[in-house]
């Protein structure tokens, strides 16, 4: 963790809460979306695997929003965060 990283509020979907010891929100410090997932993975082993693929990208049917802005199309390390941002991790509407 870098001193002075932005404080971020993260919301998790119900499907991921079993990997986060039941938490539906997590507060952490991170400068990018990639760092958010890294912090989550450090705190909750296995959670990062559910969000990012082998190449460090969001899985195909995982969406991320920063506040109200969709950022799923961006590389997670390129998604810059500001103090007070909320990151939403959501499953896309897919499958049947």
């Amino acid at each position: 963790m870098v001193e002075g990283d932005p404080r971020i509020h993260v919301t998790l979907p119900s499907a991921l809460r079993e990997y986060a010891r039941g938490c539906d929100t997590v507060d952490l410090e991170a400068g990018t979306l990639a760092e958010v997932v890294a912090r989550l993975a450090a705190q909750f082993p296995g959670l990062g695997y559910r969000i990012l693929d082998d190449q460090g990208r969001l899985r195909r049917f995982v969406n991320a929003y920063v506040n109200d802005e969709p950022v799923s199309h961006l590389e997670p390390q390129d998604v810059r965060l500001r103090d007070g941002d909320t990151v939403h991790i959501l499953p896309s509407v897919a499958g049947g």
């Binding site: 695997y49 559910r50 969000i51 899985r59 049917f61 995982v62 499953p91 896309s92 897919a94 499958g95």
Partner: peptide, 8 residues
């Protein structure tokens, strides 16, 4: 395999 959350 979860289409959303990967394969374990």
């Amino acid at each position: 395999t979860s289409e959303h959350w990967g394969a374990v």
